[in-house]
Write a protein that binds this DNA or RNA. Sequence first.
DNA 1: TCGAAAGTTGTCCATATGGACAGTCCAAAC
DNA 2: GTTTGGACTGTCCATATGGACAACTTTCGA
Lengths: 189, 189
Amino acid sequence: MKRSTTATRDRLLRAAGQLIAEFGWGRVTTRSVAERAGLPHGAVSYHFSGKQELLSDAAVLVFEQAFPIAELEALGSLEDALALMERWMEEAESGDLLVAEVGVEAILESSRDPVLRERVDALLRSYRAVLAELARRDAAAGTSFAGASPQAVATLIAAAADGLFLHARLDPELDSAAAMAALRSLLAG
Amino acid sequence: MKRSTTATRDRLLRAAGQLIAEFGWGRVTTRSVAERAGLPHGAVSYHFSGKQELLSDAAVLVFEQAFPIAELEALGSLEDALALMERWMEEAESGDLLVAEVGVEAILESSRDPVLRERVDALLRSYRAVLAELARRDAAAGTSFAGASPQAVATLIAAAADGLFLHARLDPELDSAAAMAALRSLLAG
DNA sequence: TCGAAAGTTGTCCATATGGACAGTCCAAAC
DNA sequence: GTTTGGACTGTCCATATGGACAACTTTCGA
């Protein structure tokens, strides 16, 4: 995938990511993005073919940077994967929650935008595939719960993680690490 | 809570609920709500003090109608609760997904709107409280997993349910019932 | 029947938004 | 030193948006 990155283009993308998190996809304006980036309004028209392209590129960028799937693929067991996800969750919560916000906004928006949908769906599918493979391996080795299919377990884990992100956004007191730990101990049998 | 319902007001609320699901909170316009309801634009100004109040009322209404907490409170065990949630999930998936969409939109929006936040937070808190009480009772009776605190279990269940809604929106093929079943069998030990 | 209060409607306005584009700047190629 | 092509900027415009409000209609108790 060719990426004709310009410094200006990158600044717009970063600004757009922030603003999606702050105001929600539908309320981000091209003007506000330019202003946040310290650039004139016209810059948007030049670097992107439209508002939707700008926001989509920005969202995918944020997500890929926050949850590098390569890290997940390198692991050997579901236990390790859950530990990594717990770490990601702590990072996100201690930070500005940018990822959680943008991620959820992107999922919602993708049901209205076929192009974005394709990109986000592929992303989530790949996470679930990695988790399912780990679950399958664990089950085969008998080191983990075997009462449900690896697919179902993977779906459950991915959903729980996303749901915790969502709820944590609402209630900062929510102990999502404890919930992940509970899931881990459940899976360990 | 007093509810000065008018037929007109209700039509606006229903229309607003639909439009939040279709276009996202930030892109719903007062004009589009009025048009969907078959009413003149001015009706919005009369019945609501502003756009935000209209959308907030609409979102809370949709949620309360779809997930009547009274049904959950009437149950005796976590097992029953999960079964009920599975049923809700099937209903939502077979339907138009209105609830899932509006629910998530409302959660996201509530981080930007203190008034809405208070309402949504109270709602979710009450669901978690009911689940935690069931978990506590089950653990005491020894009929269910006791390796984690009732609070953590409740948080996990609520998050998993919401996350499944979210992912199901993206991927209609996703078998969220299987994932819920997996969670249930995990909890059953 | 009358009158007030509540409900409803069409219209107006200040402001914002997305996109387009002509013009400017600049560094590298010739 | 001039040309050239891309990067960038300021401005303009058609359209939309939220909210206000005066005028009009319906409801209903006295």
